[in-house]
């Protein structure tokens, strides 16, 4: 009875079909097509020509790509821990039911709803030489001004500051949600157990939200490897490519030099990097939990 019912119920697939159609056309198909493109020499005027792994070899041999990977890795290595630490700090500080903290939560989250153009505009006003906020401040203090957007090292740093400011809202909200799931009586038990504030934080609070910390870290790794808009609008990858991220390399290769096959190959490499980084992060945190 059950078996025959299940076999007869192919019509049930119709219920999934609308979503499945969108999923396949907008996600699976582009993903596979991108892989196919990466194995071809393609430009917009002539057709595709199969070249095997040649595109990958060219990308990996390209010193500009190597520099972009280095920049992006450095950017992720600094911005992700900053986002996790600051988000956690803000969540801990604002995990109260007062009106003031509700207002501040809204304030810190508000940057997340801005578009990247607005964010970079705001931060250009801060960093721009001559009339920028920091320039004026440096001048007032009598210090030598720094060309934040045009100096090697500082340019990527400035992009990082704008990014952390822009992306801080989501980690904070996720941490707040996790903190509010911790039962109040654990804190009461800890109070009766004579636990200091530090012990409560490290022995009760942080272990209770460990899975959220891991989730936030993975989300941010995936997001920050895809850095593009801020770098393009604030520094355009300069000076001398010192703030060019991988996605900008892909953009320039595909849509400035029109080497679409090579751009697709770089995209697949980025995909692999993000996958590996997220898996390593996941593996590290679950391994600690098992121990």
């Amino acid at each position: 009875m059950a078996e025959s019912y299940r076999r007869s119920s192919w019509k049930n697939m119709l219920f999934v079909a609308p979503y499945l159609t969108a999923f396949v056309t907008l996600l699976v198909f582009p993903l596979l097509w991108g892989m196919w493109l990466s194995l071809n020499k393609v430009d917009l005027f002539s057709g595709a020509k199969f070249v095997g792994l040649k595109n990958y070899a060219r990308v990996l041999a390209d010193p500009v790509f190597a520099q972009a990977v280095k920049n992006t890795a450095l950017f992720v290595a600094v911005s992700v821990p900053s986002l996790v630490a600051l988000g956690l700090f803000l969540a801990l500080a604002l995990n109260k039911t007062t009106r003031g903290s509700a207002f501040l939560r809204g304030l810190f989250f508000s940057s997340s709803i801005l578009s990247v153009t607005i964010v970079t505009l705001i931060w250009r006003v801060v960093f721009i030489p001559g009339d920028g906020l920091l320039a004026v401040l440096f001048e007032a203090m009598g210090w030598t001004p720094i060309g934040f957007l045009s100096t090697k090292g500082w340019s990527l740093f400035s992009v990082g500051v704008a990014t952390v400011w822009w992306c801080l809202g989501l980690p904070m909200m996720l941490f707040l949600a996790a903190l509010q799931q911790i039962p109040a009586d654990l804190y009461e038990a800890a109070a009766l157990d004579n636990a200091s504030k530090w012990r409560v934080l490290t022995r009760v609070t942080l272990p209770s939200i460990r899975s959220t910390i891991m989730m936030v870290a993975v989300i941010q790794i995936v997001m920050q490897f895809q850095l593009f808009g801020q770098a393009q609008l604030m520094t355009n990858g300069g000076p001398a490519g010192s703030s060019r991220p991988i996605v900008m390399y892909i953009y320039e290769t595909s849509f400035v030099r029109w080497e679409i096959g090579m751009g697709a190959a770089a995209s697949e490499i980025l995909f692999a990097i993000i996958l590996v980084a997220a898996m390593v992060q996941y593996w590290l945190s679950t391994r600690k939990e098992e121990a």
Binding site: P183, D185, L186, E188, A190, R203, P207
Partner: peptide, 15 residues
Amino acid sequence: GVAMVFQSYALYPHM
């Protein structure tokens, strides 16, 4: 100098 047993026990779940 008091110890309390809670209705929900309030044991630390990760210890």
